[in-house]
Design a binder for these strands. Structure first.
Lengths: 226, 226
DNA sequence: GTCTATAGCCTGATAGAC
DNA sequence: GTCTATCAGGCTATAGAC
């Protein structure tokens, strides 16, 4: 059984000054990335919970014990996948939001970018948003980007309220919960019922902007607000 | 369990043949129900995909091969769980809707009942709404109640439109998709983030009526409609 | 319909040689 | 860091006695 070790992040950063060590570290990171990529492939075929270290090793042409030089346990591998996925999600939101006008427009752009990313990396999205692996919970470090992500959404809600694009009540716990319900609804319906559709054509994802407008209409500006 | 006591009691009273066959069939159904119930327990602890026939047998105090007298394979067991869950969901919706005024009120009552049922039977709800078991797809028979369920919702949308509670545009493919997005959003967020909360207290489920009102406002009556 | 026994796989993880 | 060898267990499913 899984010993339920510390789900430590194992992308160990050695102090490494000399040049030879640098190259070795780079090779190590490449191998780690190959393991993560192969793991995603396996999960895509066998389900998130169906990940098998033996199968990963088999596909990489190495022996299972070698994997333990990079990840001390299966849980640690899940943790690394979670961390990478959460960071990518945060980056996608930030990048899309940064290119739009701050406030409501940034929120819409960021949301769409995150849904698109999730469609492209479905198993990772499952790992991030649901709880498909009993016994696995992300470590605080792996979860940190997700926290930051929520924080950024709240920020944009506040900006939108300050700009008079939404009623200030939208920038609240309730507003955040409502927004997350709408986005999760679009995403989970699409994934469960039509996982291979594109964002544009998906029966549910194509409702994204309609749903976001619905959110906006839930917090209409009151008389006298800008 | 108590099955043995019951068998002992009825053994002396049972008339010759016809009733004997009857009793045997009833016992068989009881065993099947016990298997299904135990399977739900195991899935609750180990995840939907973590269901193990050996573990079911262990908890029932029988040997694994005995299970094969009732279900020819593990997939067949999943299928039976799916069928039972889908039927219960349909029944819950129908019962709640029947007690309310047909149309919008019935839709609201039915929706709430289904979400409550899902909260009480979370693993079954996962099996019904997501795809947690790679390689398992419900058979047409097991899926039939789900089809009927969607049909009933569409019916109530039409009734609501006919009664002038919604714009007729709500009774469309798009309206159905939008409604399913909203309900799935509430449910999946609650399950993923606060699975142990009650319907009343859940950070997301308590938004249910707010979200349904939002749906209604997405299809406002036009001038001149009743 | 229950059981024992077992086939024929799979898994995660460790020890230790090279 | 790679390997072989192996532990110690898990699993689904089948065969056949009772």
């Amino acid at each position: 059984m899984m010993k339920d070790d510390e789900a430590a992040i194992t992308a160990g950063l050695a102090p490494a000054r000399p040049a030879g060590l640098d190259r070795r570290r780079r090779r190590r990171e490449e191998t780690i990335n190959e393991i993560l990529g192969t793991a995603v492939q396996v999960m895509t075929e066998e389900g998130v919970a169906g990940l098998s270290l033996s199968e990963v090793a088999r596909r990489m042409g190495i022996q299972p014990p070698s994997l333990y030089k990079y990840f001390p346990s299966k849980v640690a591998l899940y943790d690394a996948l979670f961390l990478r996925g959460a960071q990518e999600t945060l980056d996608a939101f930030s990048a899309a939001a940064a290119e739009a006008e701050p406030g409501w427009n940034a929120l819409v752009a960021g949301t769409e970018a995150v849904i698109r990313l999730g469609l492209d990396h479905q198993v990772v999205a499952e790992l991030l948003n649901w709880r498909p692996v009993p016994g696995f919970e992300p470590s605080p470090q792996a979860f940190a980007p997700s926290v930051e992500f929520v924080h950024k959404i709240a920020q944009q809600l506040e900006i939108a309220a300050a700009r008079g694009e939404l009623d200030p009540a939208a920038a609240s716990e309730e507003g955040l919960a409502l927004l997350s319900v709408l986005i999760a609804g679009v995403f989970s319906q699409q994934l469960a019922n039509e996982p291979h559709a594109t964002f544009q054509q998906g029966r549910y994802t194509r409702l994204t902007s309609r749903v976001l407008e619905l959110f906006r209409s839930a917090y209409p500006l009151k008389e006298g607000e800008q």
